[in-house]
Write a protein that binds this DNA or RNA. Structure first.
Lengths: 132, 132
DNA sequence: AGATAAGTTGACGTTGACGTAAGCATAACG
DNA sequence: CGTTATGCTTACGTCAACGTCAACTTATCT
């Protein structure tokens, strides 16, 4: 790590993704590593963005959804109206995430309930068969 | 609604999905509507399952993930060992959902923070341009 | 110089989750 | 009885998100 940048293979190891994935994300303008000659060098900014990308994916957001959200994290170099649009998108996503959060809580309770019901059913039949 | 079953178009209206989607889910054994002649009739059980399917999708679970989870909701007609496997899968999913829940909370806080930072930046430049 | 490793750019393949279009059945309506 | 609505099956198309070569460059080691 000469400076503060990482090669593609270091990135792959650190984030458990393939080179193809990183190049793909770059082609979709989710990442923008600098170039030293041909080689890509990923900065701290790229790492921060990749963290957000992978997190977003875990919640079922599309890459396009995520791309829009990412803009929020480099606000400043934007025009007023563009910034307002970005903020609007972000507020919508935030609402969506809050809904998901609440819904996930319900789902967790339900599944948890189902599991203990299942466990009890298992326990009742356990008397028949002795332990292996 | 003669009895307690719904036609495919009633289902589509109720859940905002297309017929194609319902037939597709049936082909993947996520739903199993009864047949009256050719026509599909969706029972309360199908509706309950579809609710869980759509919920699962919102959290980024694949249809195959969901199919395994759904088995938990008709436990009883299963063998002991099969039931144990199902419970094991369910516990894993539950853990995954708990992780997501916590992570989502973090993400919400972060995004919320970014938004207010953005709003403040907007407010500071607001003095320049008068209201439209 | 030769070989090996790490990386690059196309370009085509694949998988999941449906969309879409064609052709046929059947029931109800006028 | 024709047609309109609703639904069915079969099959090919599509889009996102990568995977998988193939062929080439660039740096490094011996």
């Amino acid at each position: 790590m000469t400076d503060d940048v990482m090669t593609i293979s270091e990135m792959c190891a650190a984030f458990e993704v393939t080179p193809r994935t990183l190049r793909f994300y770059e082609s979709k303008e989710l990442l923008s590593p600098i170039r030293k000659g041909q080689k890509r060098l990923f900065t701290r900014r790229d790492r921060a963005r990749l963290t957000l990308i992978l997190r977003g994916k875990r919640f079922g957001f599309s890459l396009e959804d995520i791309r829009q959200l990412l803009d929020l994290y480099h606000l400043g170099d934007q025009q007023r109206t563009q910034m307002q649009r970005t903020l609007a998108v972000a507020r919508e996503r935030l609402e969506e995430m809050r809904r998901k959060h609440a819904e996930l809580e319900t789902a967790i309770e339900e599944l948890s309930q189902q599991i203990s019901t299942g466990e009890q059913a298992l326990a009742r039949t356990a008397a028949d068969e002795p332990e292996a």
